[in-house]
Simulated assay, not measured.
Amino acid sequence: MHYSLLDLAPVPEGSGVRQAIANSVALSQAAEAAGYTRHWLAEHHNMPGIASSATSILIGHIAAATTRIRVGSGGVMLPNHAPLVIAEQFGTLAEIHGDRIDLGLGRAPGTDMETARALRRHMSQQDTFPQDVLELLAYLGPVEDGQRVRAFPGMNTRVPVWILGSSLYGAQLAAHLGLPYAFASHFAPEMLEEAGHVYRTSFQPSEFLEKPHFMVAMNVFAAETDREAEFIRTSSILGFAKLRQGQPGPLPAPVERLEDHLPPDWIAAAQSRLVVSATGSEATVTAKLGELIERYAPDEVIVNAQIWDHAARVRSVEIAARALRSHGALAAA
C-alpha cells in the first residue's frame, strides 16, 4: 500500500490565490519529505476558494519545485477539454519532468452547469467520456499506422492515466480498460465499498496494468490533540455547507462551536459526507485509519486535508504519513 496527497489548492479566508499557490508548493515539498508517492491537484471552476482551475499549469509549477514526488491531476475533468489538448499538455509536462506526471480523469464538470457551458461552449447531451478516454490514451501511446492526428508533445510519453469516480460507472470503465481507479470517498462515500468490489472483480488486465489498483480518498485532520484536530476540521464542514447552500467562497477559518454558525441539519449533512475520515491526535488518527484500511483494503490511500491554517495543514499531512506507515504503507523511495 502506498500513500498520496490530494490538494484543492484551497484559498484560506483572509488570504489570496498567490498565497494559496505558494502554500501548495510548500505542502508538496513537505509531502515529498514525508514519503508521499503522489501530489494530485483537482480541476474546479468558478470557485473562489480553489486555486487549481488551470490544473496542468499548477502541476508544472509544483513539479519544478520538487524532485521525486509524482505530481498529477485528481483530476482533469475530461468533458471540459478536447482529448488532444490534454494529451499535449500532459505530454509537455512529461517531456519536462520525466516519469513523474500522472493524469487522473473525471467525468463530472467540476463546476455548476452555467460555468460548464462557458467552458465547453457547446454542450452535448451525449456521454462521450469512454470514447474520449480511449482517444486520449491513443495520443499518449505509440503512433499507429495511418494515424493522421498525433499529439506533439504527447506521443510515446505513456503518461499513466487513472479513472476517477464516485459511482459504479467509473469503476466499471476503469476495470474494462484495465486502468487504475481512484474513488472520491472524501466527499461521496456512499458507493465506496460496492465500487471497490465491482472494480476488482471485473478488472481486465491490459498493457497499462496487470492487476487492479484501487485508490481510496480519506480526509485526515490530525493535530497534537483530539480537541485541536476537531477545531481545525470545522473549516471543512463550514466550507462544505456553504458550497451546498450555493455560497462557495474561500476556505473558512475554524470556529470553536459549529452550532453558532450553522443549523444542526446543515452540520449533520456536511458531516455525513465526511465519514471516510480520521480526526484526532496521532494515536486517534492511527486507530481510525487502521479501521478504514481494514474495511476497504485499498492499494493506495490518498489523503485530503482541507485545513485553513497552512502550518496546521503541513503538520496534519506529516502525522498522517506516520500513521499510515504504522499500518504498513510504503514511503516512496
Rank of each mutant, 00 (worst) to 15 (best):
M1F: 14
Y3P: 01
L8G: 01
V11I: 10
P12W: 15
S15R: 06
V17N: 05
I21C: 06
A22T: 02
S24I: 10
A34N: 01
I50V: 07
S52C: 03
A54L: 02
H61A: 03
H61F: 06
A64F: 10
S73K: 00
M77I: 02
M77N: 05
M77F: 01
T92R: 06
A94V: 08
A94P: 05
G98D: 05
R107A: 12
D112T: 15
M113C: 06
A116D: 09
A116K: 01
A118I: 13
L119Q: 14
T128H: 09
L134M: 13
R148Y: 06
R148G: 00
P160L: 05
W162L: 10
S167T: 15
Q172V: 12
A175H: 06
Y181D: 01
L192W: 02
R200F: 03
F203K: 14
Q204N: 13
F214S: 12
A222R: 08
A223F: 02
T225M: 12
R227C: 02
A229F: 06
S236D: 03
F240H: 05
A253T: 08
E256Q: 11
D260Q: 14
D265Q: 09
W266F: 15
W266R: 15
I267A: 13
S272D: 02
L274I: 12
S277D: 01
T279K: 07
S281Y: 08
A283V: 08
G290Y: 06
N304W: 11
W308H: 10
A320L: 05
A323M: 11
G328Y: 08
A331R: 06
A332F: 01
